[in-house]
């Protein structure tokens, strides 16, 4: 792998890390299996693409994409807390609804952004090359998002959010309305996911209504890889792990593709990776149980 291919997959890893950090917020912090992600990612992409295509400032487009994601997460949260629909189903419902909404926003199944103004070209006016400008932009954005999450999870409100994922009854007995913390967590998470979608749309130069399929699994894979390499469970290390996990995931995918892997098999391989990681403890347990039984004979 030459250096430019390496850097470009690191860069992709950074873009998708923002989505993975969103997934970390729901799956790990809030303990909520949120499948909204597969819909809010293309939602962010759709909003940004449509606006940029229509000549809006990319910065404004991205902010509106983020808000759209927050709205999507809020909807899932309301379905779950107010209408008492299970978390899993709430996410699936929002995701399904978003498919149609995304098509409506875009007006067609895909939009090309070739030749349009992109947010990460902002630095080129300073005389920095487009390539470097893009890389620096994503590095800085991911760093800011990571630090913001670290900070937020230490605030009083952030502590309440973490406690909601840990012990709902306890925070309720301390006066926290956990319906609101769940909605807040889902809103923030999907805001980040939509932000990632908006950035990916510009990075790859097009938006497709199907670009969200399997996104949640990619996010989970990043979180899990991150946990495997960064063992420290403190927030600031865990979020760093998620970013590294996302980058490593992209590198692995790039290598796999270079080894002539069929791109159509990528999702299958990602799913197997996640199954392996999530199933490892159970498999280990069974294995040692069998050994114990064998030893007793």
């Amino acid at each position: 792998m030459n250096i430019s291919v390496f850097l470009s997959s690191v860069e992709q890893g950074l873009v998708y890390a923002i989505m993975a950090l969103g997934v970390y917020l729901t799956f790990r912090i809030l303990d909520f299996p949120d499948l909204t992600v597969d819909g809010s990612f293309p939602l962010g992409a759709a909003v940004a693409a449509k606006l940029i295509y229509s000549g809006w400032n990319p910065v404004v487009a991205i902010i509106l994409a983020l808000l759209a994601g927050i709205l999507a997460g809020t909807l899932t949260g309301i379905l779950n807390t107010k209408l008492k629909i299970t978390g899993l189903l709430s996410g699936i419902l929002t995701m399904t609804a978003l498919y149609s909404i995304n098509l409506r926003i875009m007006g067609r199944a895909n939009i090309s952004l070739l030749g349009k103004n992109k947010i990460f070209n902002l630095l080129t006016s300073l005389g920095i090359s487009e390539k470097a400008s893009t890389f620096i932009f994503f590095f800085v954005v991911v760093l800011i998002v990571k630090l913001l999450i670290d900070w937020f999870l230490k605030t009083e409100l952030g502590l309440a959010l973490r406690a909601t994922g840990d012990n709902k009854q306890m925070v309720r007995s301390l006066g926290v309305n956990t319906d609101l913390t769940v909605i807040l967590g889902l809103g923030l998470s999907n805001g980040l996911v939509a932000l990632a979608g908006a950035l990916v749309a510009q990075h790859q130069g097009f938006t497709d209504v199907k670009m969200g399929i399997g996104m949640i699994i990619i996010g989970l894979a990043s979180v899990i890889i991150g946990e495997a390499i960064v063992r420290n469970k403190t927030i600031k290390w865990a979020t760093l792990g998620v970013v590294l996990g996302s980058v490593i995931y992209r590198l692995v995918i790039t290598i796999a593709l270079r080894m002539r892997l069929n791109p159509n098999d990528l999702k299958l391989i990602t799913a197997i990776l996640v199954i392996g990681a999530l199933g490892a403890p159970a498999i280990k347990e069974q294995f040692s149980f069998k050994r114990l039984q064998g030893g007793a004979k």
């Binding site: 230490k154 009083e156 502590l159 973490r162 925070v171 301390l174 006066g175 926290v176």
Partner: peptide, 19 residues
């Protein structure tokens, strides 16, 4: 962190650092 939540029992939570 647990004690922060107890200290704020029943009052508004803010965006200040908890501990």
């Amino acid at each position: 962190e647990n004690l922060v939540l107890a200290l704020k029992r029943g009052s508004r939570l803010g965006l200040g650092i908890g501990v």
